[in-house]
């Protein structure tokens, strides 16, 4: 087992940008003081343990034509949350779906992030999803402006 400092260093590097070279894991390994095989093994283990969801490209969805997005919050009885949450999650246009603890003045507790190419397409996807889950009370919260977007800093 490698000491925590080296692992922290590797986490820090992996939160950045992987070098686009023939042997990127070797480049990483040299930077943090491990071997190429060790880097590959550690990343493998982190993925198996669920610490790392994936190692890949993080894309800007608006540049891919998904220019119209909304956070839709649905008002769902606690007993129905799993059914509705899983049903929304099955849609390829839903990227995130969570059940959140909400205050009394905001009873919209299932949050789903929905992506579409155009405004009309977004509206029709939301209508289809509403019919699919059988929920009529929901709030479409469109984003007017992105004030900040960064990654989480783990170390």
């Amino acid at each position: 087992m490698k000491n925590d400092d080296v692992l922290d260093l590797l986490i820090k590097e992996l939160q950045g940008d992987l070098p686009v070279v023939s042997r990127p894991y070797l480049a990483l390994a040299e930077k943090v003081g491990l071997t190429e095989d060790e880097v590959i093994d550690i990343i493998n283990r982190w993925q198996t343990e669920g610490l790392m969801r994936r190692l890949g490209a993080v894309v800007r969805h608006n540049r891919l034509g998904f220019a119209s997005n909304a956070l839709v919050a649905w008002k769902v009885d606690a007993s129905e949350c799993d059914r509705v949450g899983n049903s929304l999650a099955a849609s390829s246009r839903v990227s995130h779906c969570y059940w959140r603890q909400t205050p009394a003045d905001w009873p919209y507790n299932i949050f789903s992030m929905i992506h579409a190419r155009t405004r009309p397409e977004l509206a029709s996807i939301i209508e289809e999803l509403a019919a699919q889950v059988g929920i009529n009370e929901y709030k479409t919260i469109t984003s007017m402006r992105e004030l900040k977007k960064t990654s989480v800093h783990y170390r």
């Binding site: 986490i11 992996l14 939160q15 686009v20 990343i43 610490l51 790392m52 894309v59 783990y154």
Partner: peptide, 30 residues
């Protein structure tokens, strides 16, 4: 492949190539 990746980055389509960590699994609270 490497040239195409560089272009996709320059065009702003790829924000970065890297690890996506799981906050709860990392012990973070959000």
């Amino acid at each position: 492949v490497m040239t195409r990746i560089s272009h996709l980055k320059q065009d702003g389509i790829i924000r970065r190539l890297g690890g996506v960590f799981d906050s709860p699994a990392m012990g973070m609270k959000s």
